[in-house]
Protein backbone atom coordinates (compact mmCIF):
# COMPACT_ATOMS: atom_id res chain seq x y z
CA UNK A 1 0.00 0.00 0.00
CA UNK A 2 2.76 2.47 0.99
CA UNK A 3 4.75 1.70 -2.11
CA UNK A 4 1.65 2.04 -4.24
CA UNK A 5 0.96 5.39 -2.61
CA UNK A 6 4.35 6.82 -3.57
CA UNK A 7 4.07 5.52 -7.10
CA UNK A 8 0.64 7.04 -7.49
CA UNK A 9 1.78 10.34 -6.02
CA UNK A 10 4.68 10.49 -8.49
CA UNK A 11 2.18 10.28 -11.34
CA UNK A 12 0.52 13.53 -10.23
CA UNK A 13 2.78 16.03 -11.96
CA UNK A 14 1.55 19.29 -10.37
CA UNK A 15 1.83 17.73 -6.91
CA UNK A 16 5.30 16.43 -7.60
CA UNK A 17 6.47 19.84 -8.86
CA UNK A 18 4.85 21.48 -5.84
CA UNK A 19 6.65 19.21 -3.41
CA UNK A 20 9.97 20.10 -5.03
CA UNK A 21 9.17 23.83 -4.95
CA UNK A 22 8.09 23.64 -1.30
CA UNK A 23 11.20 21.70 -0.33
CA UNK A 24 13.45 24.23 -2.08
CA UNK A 25 11.58 27.03 -0.37
CA UNK A 26 11.89 25.56 3.11
CA UNK A 27 15.54 24.81 2.47
CA UNK A 28 16.08 28.42 1.40
CA UNK A 29 14.23 29.79 4.43
CA UNK A 30 16.60 28.00 6.76
CA UNK A 31 19.88 28.03 4.82
CA UNK A 32 19.97 31.46 3.13
CA UNK A 33 20.27 33.50 6.34
CA UNK A 34 23.09 31.23 7.52
CA UNK A 35 24.99 31.31 4.23
CA UNK A 36 24.60 35.04 3.62
CA UNK A 37 24.95 36.01 7.32
CA UNK A 38 21.60 37.80 7.29
CA UNK A 39 19.89 39.08 10.40
CA UNK A 40 16.26 40.19 10.19
CA UNK A 41 16.52 42.61 13.13
CA UNK A 42 19.69 44.56 12.33
CA UNK A 43 18.93 47.99 11.00
CA UNK A 44 21.25 49.65 8.52
CA UNK A 45 20.88 53.36 9.26
CA UNK A 46 22.71 54.26 6.07
CA UNK A 47 20.36 52.25 3.83
CA UNK A 48 16.70 52.95 4.50
CA UNK A 49 14.13 52.30 1.77
CA UNK A 50 16.88 51.31 -0.61
CA UNK A 51 16.11 49.33 -3.78
CA UNK A 52 17.88 45.99 -4.39
CA UNK A 53 21.68 46.34 -4.50
CA UNK A 54 24.80 44.39 -3.54
CA UNK A 55 24.69 43.70 0.20
CA UNK A 56 20.90 44.04 0.22
CA UNK A 57 19.84 41.73 -2.58
CA UNK A 58 16.13 42.47 -2.17
CA UNK A 59 16.58 45.99 -0.85
CA UNK A 60 15.74 47.34 2.60
CA UNK A 61 12.60 48.46 4.41
CA UNK A 62 11.77 51.79 6.05
CA UNK A 63 14.05 51.10 9.04
CA UNK A 64 16.92 49.76 6.95
CA UNK A 65 16.38 46.07 7.64
CA UNK A 66 17.33 43.55 4.97
CA UNK A 67 14.20 42.42 3.10
CA UNK A 68 15.64 39.00 2.20
CA UNK A 69 16.44 38.31 5.83
CA UNK A 70 12.95 39.32 6.86
CA UNK A 71 11.45 37.27 4.04
CA UNK A 72 13.18 34.15 5.38
CA UNK A 73 12.28 34.89 8.99
CA UNK A 74 8.68 35.72 8.07
CA UNK A 75 8.37 32.57 5.99
CA UNK A 76 9.47 30.44 8.93
CA UNK A 77 6.91 32.05 11.19
CA UNK A 78 4.12 31.86 8.58
CA UNK A 79 4.81 28.20 7.88
CA UNK A 80 5.07 27.44 11.59
CA UNK A 81 1.69 29.02 12.27
CA UNK A 82 0.11 27.37 9.21
CA UNK A 83 1.31 23.84 9.91
CA UNK A 84 0.90 24.10 13.68
CA UNK A 85 -2.65 25.41 13.59
CA UNK A 86 -3.70 22.85 10.96
CA UNK A 87 -2.38 20.07 13.18
CA UNK A 88 -4.26 21.48 16.15
CA UNK A 89 -7.46 21.57 14.04
CA UNK A 90 -6.95 17.90 13.11
CA UNK A 91 -6.20 16.93 16.68
CA UNK A 92 -9.52 18.39 17.82
CA UNK A 93 -11.52 17.64 14.69
CA UNK A 94 -10.69 13.95 14.15
CA UNK A 95 -11.87 12.60 17.53
CA UNK A 96 -14.96 14.82 17.47
CA UNK A 97 -15.74 13.78 13.90
CA UNK A 98 -15.39 10.13 14.81
CA UNK A 99 -17.78 10.51 17.72
CA UNK A 100 -20.25 12.48 15.61
CA UNK A 101 -20.17 9.99 12.76
CA UNK A 102 -19.84 6.77 14.72
CA UNK A 103 -22.66 7.33 17.18
CA UNK A 104 -26.25 8.31 16.85
CA UNK A 105 -28.12 10.61 19.19
CA UNK A 106 -27.22 13.29 21.68
CA UNK A 107 -23.42 13.58 21.38
CA UNK A 108 -23.50 13.39 17.62
CA UNK A 109 -26.00 16.20 17.22
CA UNK A 110 -24.36 18.29 19.96
CA UNK A 111 -21.02 18.19 18.12
CA UNK A 112 -22.65 19.01 14.82
CA UNK A 113 -24.58 21.97 16.24
CA UNK A 114 -21.45 23.39 17.91
CA UNK A 115 -19.60 23.11 14.63
CA UNK A 116 -22.50 24.94 12.95
CA UNK A 117 -22.02 27.73 15.46
CA UNK A 118 -18.30 27.93 14.72
CA UNK A 119 -18.92 27.98 10.99
CA UNK A 120 -21.63 30.61 11.12
CA UNK A 121 -19.19 33.28 12.37
CA UNK A 122 -17.03 35.07 9.81
CA UNK A 123 -13.58 33.64 10.53
CA UNK A 124 -11.65 36.90 10.26
CA UNK A 125 -13.81 38.78 12.76
CA UNK A 126 -13.69 35.87 15.20
CA UNK A 127 -9.91 35.70 14.96
CA UNK A 128 -9.57 39.48 15.38
CA UNK A 129 -11.68 39.41 18.54
CA UNK A 130 -9.87 36.39 19.95
CA UNK A 131 -6.48 37.98 19.30
CA UNK A 132 -7.66 41.17 20.97
CA UNK A 133 -8.72 39.12 23.99
CA UNK A 134 -5.85 36.67 24.28
CA UNK A 135 -2.92 38.58 22.84
CA UNK A 136 -1.03 38.17 19.61
CA UNK A 137 2.00 36.01 20.37
CA UNK A 138 3.00 33.61 17.62
CA UNK A 139 1.87 30.51 19.56
CA UNK A 140 -1.28 32.34 20.61
CA UNK A 141 -2.23 33.01 17.00
CA UNK A 142 -1.42 29.42 16.08
CA UNK A 143 -3.64 28.12 18.87
CA UNK A 144 -6.54 30.42 18.01
CA UNK A 145 -6.41 29.56 14.31
CA UNK A 146 -6.13 25.88 15.22
CA UNK A 147 -9.10 25.90 17.54
CA UNK A 148 -11.25 27.85 15.10
CA UNK A 149 -10.43 25.41 12.31
CA UNK A 150 -11.74 22.19 13.85
CA UNK A 151 -15.24 22.06 12.28
CA UNK A 152 -14.02 21.41 8.73
CA UNK A 153 -12.14 18.14 9.40
CA UNK A 154 -14.73 17.05 11.96
CA UNK A 155 -17.64 17.43 9.55
CA UNK A 156 -15.75 15.83 6.70
CA UNK A 157 -14.81 12.82 8.81
CA UNK A 158 -18.24 12.39 10.35
CA UNK A 159 -19.91 12.50 6.94
CA UNK A 160 -17.49 9.88 5.63
CA UNK A 161 -17.89 7.66 8.67
CA UNK A 162 -21.66 7.86 8.33
CA UNK A 163 -21.61 6.80 4.70
CA UNK A 164 -19.03 4.06 5.25
CA UNK A 165 -20.78 2.46 8.18
CA UNK A 166 -23.88 1.74 6.09
CA UNK A 167 -21.86 -0.31 3.60
CA UNK A 168 -22.14 -4.07 3.49
CA UNK A 169 -18.55 -4.77 4.47
CA UNK A 170 -19.30 -3.31 7.89
CA UNK A 171 -22.17 -5.76 8.26
CA UNK A 172 -19.82 -8.45 7.05
CA UNK A 173 -17.34 -7.60 9.81
CA UNK A 174 -20.19 -7.72 12.32
CA UNK A 175 -21.04 -11.21 11.09
CA UNK A 176 -17.48 -12.24 11.95
CA UNK A 177 -18.20 -11.22 15.53
CA UNK A 178 -16.06 -8.07 15.43
CA UNK A 179 -16.84 -5.53 18.13
CA UNK A 180 -18.14 -2.07 17.27
CA UNK A 181 -14.88 -0.47 18.39
CA UNK A 182 -12.86 -2.82 16.22
CA UNK A 183 -15.10 -2.08 13.24
CA UNK A 184 -14.91 1.67 13.80
CA UNK A 185 -11.11 1.78 13.99
CA UNK A 186 -10.10 -1.05 11.66
CA UNK A 187 -12.76 -0.99 8.95
CA UNK A 188 -14.45 2.39 8.88
CA UNK A 189 -11.71 4.82 9.90
CA UNK A 190 -9.09 3.77 7.30
CA UNK A 191 -11.72 4.09 4.58
CA UNK A 192 -13.08 7.38 5.85
CA UNK A 193 -9.89 9.25 6.68
CA UNK A 194 -8.13 9.69 3.32
CA UNK A 195 -9.93 12.91 2.32
CA UNK A 196 -8.63 14.36 5.58
CA UNK A 197 -5.05 14.48 4.33
CA UNK A 198 -6.25 16.77 1.61
CA UNK A 199 -8.17 18.73 4.17
CA UNK A 200 -4.98 19.01 6.25
CA UNK A 201 -3.15 20.59 3.31
CA UNK A 202 -6.00 23.00 2.67
CA UNK A 203 -6.09 23.89 6.37
CA UNK A 204 -2.39 24.74 6.27
CA UNK A 205 -2.77 27.05 3.30
CA UNK A 206 -5.94 28.58 4.72
CA UNK A 207 -4.30 29.26 8.06
CA UNK A 208 -1.37 30.89 6.32
CA UNK A 209 -3.72 33.18 4.44
CA UNK A 210 -5.64 33.98 7.63
CA UNK A 211 -2.41 34.69 9.47
CA UNK A 212 -1.20 37.01 6.69
CA UNK A 213 -4.52 38.79 6.63
CA UNK A 214 -4.37 39.21 10.37
CA UNK A 215 -0.80 40.50 10.31
CA UNK A 216 -1.62 42.75 7.39
CA UNK A 217 -4.36 44.31 9.50
CA UNK A 218 -1.85 44.74 12.31
CA UNK A 219 -3.50 42.27 14.69
CA UNK A 220 -1.30 39.28 13.93
CA UNK A 221 2.42 38.81 14.25
CA UNK A 222 3.79 42.02 15.75
CA UNK A 223 6.92 43.81 14.52
CA UNK A 224 9.82 43.55 15.02
CA UNK A 225 8.94 39.88 14.42
CA UNK A 226 8.50 39.32 10.71
CA UNK A 227 5.75 37.51 8.86
CA UNK A 228 4.75 37.62 5.23
CA UNK A 229 1.57 39.35 6.28
CA UNK A 230 3.12 42.21 8.21
CA UNK A 231 5.72 42.71 5.48
CA UNK A 232 2.88 43.37 3.07
CA UNK A 233 1.46 45.87 5.52
CA UNK A 234 3.91 48.43 4.18
CA UNK A 235 1.87 48.41 0.97
CA UNK A 236 -0.93 50.22 2.77
CA UNK A 237 1.01 53.39 2.12
CA UNK A 238 0.48 54.65 -1.41
CA UNK A 239 4.07 55.78 -1.75
CA UNK A 240 5.41 52.29 -0.93
CA UNK A 241 2.81 50.62 -3.12
CA UNK A 242 3.70 52.66 -6.17
CA UNK A 243 7.43 53.38 -5.79
CA UNK A 244 8.95 50.60 -3.63
CA UNK A 245 7.58 47.26 -4.89
CA UNK A 246 10.59 45.38 -3.42
CA UNK A 247 9.17 45.97 0.07
CA UNK A 248 5.88 44.08 -0.44
CA UNK A 249 6.08 42.13 -3.69
CA UNK A 250 8.43 39.28 -2.53
CA UNK A 251 6.32 38.46 0.53
CA UNK A 252 3.15 38.41 -1.55
CA UNK A 253 4.69 36.21 -4.23
CA UNK A 254 6.05 33.78 -1.62
CA UNK A 255 2.63 33.52 -0.02
CA UNK A 256 0.88 32.86 -3.32
CA UNK A 257 3.42 30.29 -4.47
CA UNK A 258 3.44 28.38 -1.17
CA UNK A 259 -0.36 28.35 -0.87
CA UNK A 260 -0.80 27.08 -4.42
CA UNK A 261 1.88 24.44 -3.92
CA UNK A 262 0.38 23.19 -0.67
CA UNK A 263 -3.03 22.90 -2.33
CA UNK A 264 -1.57 20.90 -5.21
CA UNK A 265 0.18 18.59 -2.77
CA UNK A 266 -3.14 18.06 -0.98
CA UNK A 267 -4.78 17.19 -4.26
CA UNK A 268 -1.97 14.77 -5.11
CA UNK A 269 -2.28 13.04 -1.75
CA UNK A 270 -6.01 12.67 -2.20
CA UNK A 271 -5.67 11.08 -5.61
CA UNK A 272 -2.87 8.80 -4.47
CA UNK A 273 -4.69 7.61 -1.36
CA UNK A 274 -7.89 6.58 -3.10
CA UNK A 275 -7.41 2.99 -4.26
CA UNK A 276 -10.50 3.29 -6.43
CA UNK A 277 -9.04 5.97 -8.66
CA UNK A 278 -7.28 4.35 -11.54
CA UNK A 279 -3.93 5.43 -12.88
CA UNK A 280 -3.75 6.14 -16.54
Amino acid sequence: MRKGFLRRFMHHVPALVSVIVLLLMVLALFLLPVILHLDPYTTDMLAMNKSPRPGHILGTDATGRNILARLCEGGKISLYIGVGSALISMLIGIPLGLIAGGTKGFWSSLIMRISDMFLSFPAMILVLVSVAMFGSSVSGIMLILGILGWPAPARLLSANVMSEREKSYVMSAKLLGRSNTYILFHCILPNAISPLWTSLAFRISQSMILESGLSFLGAGVQPPLASWGNMMQSATSLVVLTTRPWQWLPAGLCLIVSVICINFVGEGIRDALDPRLKLN
Binding site: M1, K167, S168, Y169, M171, S172, A173, L175, L176, G177, C187, P190, N191, P275, R276
Partner: peptide, 19 residues
Amino acid sequence: VRKRMQLIFQDPYSALNPR
Protein backbone atom coordinates in the same frame (compact mmCIF):
# COMPACT_ATOMS: atom_id res chain seq x y z
CA VAL B 1 -23.29 -18.80 16.85
CA ARG B 2 -21.79 -16.37 14.32
CA LYS B 3 -19.35 -19.09 13.32
CA ARG B 4 -22.22 -21.32 12.23
CA MET B 5 -24.01 -18.70 10.09
CA GLN B 6 -22.99 -16.41 7.27
CA LEU B 7 -24.45 -14.06 4.71
CA ILE B 8 -23.79 -13.71 0.99
CA PHE B 9 -24.45 -10.13 0.03
CA GLN B 10 -26.35 -8.73 -2.88
CA ASP B 11 -23.87 -6.06 -3.89
CA PRO B 12 -20.44 -7.65 -4.18
CA TYR B 13 -18.74 -4.29 -4.48
CA SER B 14 -19.59 -2.86 -1.07
CA ALA B 15 -19.43 -6.24 0.68
CA LEU B 16 -15.63 -6.23 0.58
CA ASN B 17 -13.42 -3.79 2.41
CA PRO B 18 -11.86 -1.73 -0.41
CA ARG B 19 -8.54 -1.49 1.44
